[in-house]
Every structure is written in C-alpha cells, then in structure tokens.
Simulated scan of single mutants.
Amino acid sequence: MSSEHMQIGEVAARTELSLRTIRHYEETGLVTPSARSQGGFRLYTETDIARLMVIRRMKPLGFTLEQMRDLMDATDRLDSGEELSAEEREEGLAQVREFERMAAERVTDLQTQLARAEEFAATLRERLAPVRLA
C-alpha cells in the first residue's frame, strides 16, 4: 500500500469524523475513496481528507447534504483543470460566492446565539453568587 493512501480509520482520526459518518458521506456521493486495497479496504488521499474537512465545516452551519454536494460539484468543476468557458467558470464562481454569503450569514447568526447563551450563563452565575458566599 502506498504511503499516500490511508485507510478509513486513519482518516476518521485525522478528520474527527466517525467511520459511520465517512461511510454515510460515501453512500450519499459526497466523497469517494480514491482507491481500494487488494483486500477491498477503502483508501483515501490528502485530497479526500480535504474534501471531508469542507463537509465537516459545513455541517454545523446547517447546510444540507444536497447543498454540500452542490458546492462540491462547483468546486470540482473549477478545480478540474479542464477548459471551462467564461460562462461556465463564472457560473461556478457565482455558486461558490453564494455559499460564502450563506456561510457568513450563518456565522453571524451563530455568534448572536452564542452571545445570548453567554448572557444566560452569566445571569445564572450572578443568581448563584450569593448562594456561594453563604
């Protein structure tokens, strides 16, 4: 086995995703192992890991599997090295820009939620402060 290829266990450790999640992403077409060993084990490359990391970062922002697939398709086309027409290239870039906009919006929403959660925790600490002093 080439040192460039990793089995699913190493990929799971590096990405902090479960084996089940990685297999699910494979079943849904989000990521495909680059190769299989003679024994049939899935083999992944650094490129596959990078793809899984993008997916992992999209998940907490609430992107659906379909949206993840759409972004992956757009970036795959842009990164394919094949000659794209100006229109195809701009369409792909427009899709990526839209995902960037949605991600920024969701990050702002999460920051607001975090601030509210921190305020709530502070309120509870203040309420318990007199009890701790007693």
Rank of each mutant, 00 (worst) to 15 (best):
E26L: 07
Q38I: 09
I49S: 07
Q95F: 13
T47L: 10
T123G: 14
L110W: 01
I8P: 05
R89E: 13
S37V: 01
A134W: 14
V11A: 05
E16D: 06
S85T: 11
T45Y: 07
A94K: 15
F99K: 04
H5V: 00
L84F: 03
E27K: 15
A86C: 09
S3A: 12
R56S: 09
E98P: 05
T45W: 07
V31P: 02
V107E: 10
L114M: 14
R132E: 12
R125H: 10
A121L: 15
L128F: 10
F120W: 13
R57M: 14
R36H: 04
A129P: 09
M6Y: 08
A103T: 10
V11R: 05
Q38Y: 08
D73A: 14
F99W: 08
R20F: 00
T47Q: 09
E87Y: 09
R97K: 13
L43A: 06
Q95K: 15
Y25V: 06
E98F: 01
L52M: 02
Q111E: 13
A117L: 14
A35L: 02
A94Y: 12
V31F: 08
R127F: 15
M6W: 06
R97T: 07
T21M: 14
T108E: 14
M58S: 08
M72S: 08
M53S: 04
T45E: 04
G29T: 04
L19W: 06
T47G: 09
E27S: 15
L93V: 12
G81K: 01
R97E: 12
Y44K: 06
Q95L: 14
E10I: 12
A13P: 07
T64F: 01
E100V: 14
F120L: 15
R20I: 11
T123P: 09
R127Q: 15
E100T: 13
L43S: 03
R101D: 07
E4A: 03
L30M: 07
A74E: 08
F99L: 06
L128M: 11
T123E: 15
R97D: 14
R101N: 03
E119H: 13
S34D: 13
T108D: 15
R132D: 11
E88Y: 01
A86Y: 12
V96F: 12
R36N: 00
R116S: 12
E46W: 08
R106D: 00
G9Y: 05
V11N: 05
